[in-house]
Design a protein around this nucleic acid. Structure first.
Lengths: 215, 215
DNA sequence: CTTGTTTTGTTACTTATTTCACAAAATTAA
DNA sequence: TTAATTTTGTGAAATAAGTAACAAAACAAG
């Protein structure tokens, strides 16, 4: 099994780029072209594909459609993924309304909040009391959850999610989550991302040295 | 100059953990403790500090307050950072309203949108027509911008930002931005982060192998 | 003052990731 | 059919990142 997060992230990027190329009318693509599109080297593309047993045609490149099927299958995108969000503050609400997930086969089926005033069962994405989370997750066999609560609540919410059977969490709260062995937690920390930009802006514009890395 | 994004991200994490420890009443900390708090090894902490010439006291650990000052200065957090947001859809609006930035010394001073109906000069964060971006950025000497537009608009918005003098961008649009040498673009792609969680949930729960990595 | 203990700071080692380089396959042209 | 050309696929080489180990400093206790 490939366990490098960066590698998997690149697969997703390849997939996105391939959709774009497909919509522009291309049917096949060379590693070189795809690499340019995503901002990596051609070697990297071929190596990544090699790791997953994806092969193309010597001299002919890769058939985009077949490639997309393969990537989607590897990434678990061949079936609709149901996801819940806990916390209906600014970020949580934006996520529930966000259109970008749908076209990626991700559906936010419900939100949850501890504050009854923020609950609303009749919206496009219903917001339910946190007490209903466990049953909801079990009934719908949901495996993925998003935490968009204040940091004080995050661990508690995570524990509740794991108890209910959730195996993967995307956590927006700026705190490290303790999680069971058979689960995965990814972090999105907006302050941190901005801080990082700030650091590199200062670093690039102050001294006389150069850099090219970014990730 | 340190150019490893991961390393800088860790510095931010150390900083956050240190604030937490300080608020709990601690005045000094050992590399071991800080490492546990952030989820890395003690060696890593000391190595990171070593790279930036940060030193502590043999047997005595590190003075939290002095350490925080040093980290804040490295990360450019010793002065208020003004940031603008372009795109006032769900994500852009959530960012403008997001409370988390303030306590990190980051202030969103304005939003911009191409749609006049979405503009509103009198909000807490005024939303201005995109045409006013250039003057606004120049007058306020703003160096950092956030792109929260649809992907089709992203490159155009980025070009406008660079023209106006912005040097660092945090980009939420799922597209690679072409940028000048002396600038930096960081990416936040929510679909991609979720896809990643989905991959690892599948990978961890299907086969008989184990993994521990997460990043 | 000496001995023992703790923790840093850094060098050496290990592991992981990326790039290089080239044989093998596929295609085209003659 | 043969030669020339292009592009993949993959081991080997190079780089980067992370861990381990330990000497040196700091302190405490006797």
């Amino acid at each position: 099994m490939v366990t490098s997060k960066n590698c998997i992230i690149r697969l997703s990027r390849y997939k996105n780029a391939l959709y774009r190329l497909l919509s522009l009318g291309f049917l096949k693509v060379f590693s070189e072209t795809l690499a340019d599109e995503v901002g990596v080297t051609a070697s990297q593309v071929r190596k990544d594909f090699s790791l997953f047993g994806i092969s193309g045609n010597k001299k002919g490149g890769y058939q985009i459609e077949a490639l997309l099927n393969k990537l989607s299958s590897i990434l678990g995108k061949d079936k609709l993924q149901k996801v819940i969000v806990v916390g209906s503050g600014h970020i949580g609400t934006a996520l529930m309304k966000y259109k970008g997930f749908e076209k990626e086969g991700i559906k936010i089926t419900a939100g949850f909040d501890i504050d009854p005033a923020k609950c609303n069962k009749s919206g496009t994405v219903p917001v339910l009391p946190i007490g209903e989370l466990k049953d909801f997750v079990k009934n719908d066999a949901i495996k993925i959850g998003i935490i968009a609560t204040p940091d004080i609540a995050a661990q508690q919410v995570a524990d509740l999610m794991f108890e209910a059977g959730i195996k993967g969490i995307l956590n927006f709260a700026p705190i490290r989550i303790k999680s069971p062995q058979d689960s995965i937690v990814n972090y999105v920390n907006l302050e941190l991302e901005l801080e990082n930009v700030i650091y590199f802006v200062n670093a690039l514009n102050k001294p006389l040295s150069l850099s090219k890395d970014s990730a």
